[in-house]
Amino acid sequence: MSDEPRSDGGDAAVEAGGDPGPSAFEPLSVEAAADLIGEIVDNVERVIVGKRDAVEHILVATVARGHVLLEDVPGTGKTMLARSVATSVDASFRRVQFTPDLLPSDVTGVNVFNQKTQEFEFQAGPVFANVVLADEINRAPPKTQSALLEAMEERQVTVDGETRPLPEPFVVIATQNDVESGRTYELPMAEIDRFAKKLRLGYPEGDQEAEIIGRTAGHHPIEELEPVTDGHTLRRARETAGQVTLSEPVRSYIGRLAAHTRNNAQLGVSPRGSIALARTSQVRALLDGRDYVTPDDVQAEVRTVFAHRIRPRTGSETGEDVVASALSSVTVE
């Protein structure tokens, strides 16, 4: 699971500066990986104030090859967060504003006839970047949404019969505005399932807001943000994460948590959700400098990984409630 041989993936690392070489990436040591992620988080925190948890979650998803859905009101720093992460890892960043008239080709790119060469040339869409911010994804029609979601799942794009791999690392950070429900297309459960995590940033707390105002008074700090690592190192950290031990008790714990949601909700967590929880738990362990996953890691990840995949039985219940019930009743062994 840690290693998907993608020989062509390396070549397509257009702006990541990654070494195309053979597929095998030398894994970092556990300590080095932990330090790396810590450095990125610290770096991002220079821009994003008081959201260390959210930054960590996004990095965990990134290292765990997942995508993130941010659900929040406008103006809470979603775009800034995505940009900071992209900048910190020295990766390409593209932003797509989803609107009701957005077409699938506006996301994936299109073949354009070049008058000079008399040939069709592929104009890569915004999806060909390491970090893609899909803003207000629920405003686009399902056809366009599915174009992006397909790219997310398969990490490749097919235009006019030609399949093109997406760069590595490839992370989609989609946002969803939940205050304006008019003229939106709610994401189907099947598509929501493809996001490893769903996060809420929330408003900054008292003092933090004052600090944000202070920092942004002159230059915006994002403009001075320097990369602390590169895509190649990040992929080595991914290798490390894949080697973190998932012992039988932990695997069984994840399985029982998922089973609990299935027994206590209209729609429970899919095996894809369980796999995502296992992967993110591995990165969480790495963050703590451990080479094995403990149930504490699982518990730290399960809310953001499971909650959005659950459709509760009653309207008064939320996915978080079901996860909370699973956490309190499933025995840790």
């Binding site: 149930p295 504490d296 518990q299 956490l327 309190s328 009743s329 840790v332």
Partner: peptide, 10 residues
């Protein structure tokens, strides 16, 4: 006793 959902550290 340790509760059902409690990890060792918790």
């Amino acid at each position: 006793p340790r509760r059902a959902g409690e990890t060792v550290a918790d």
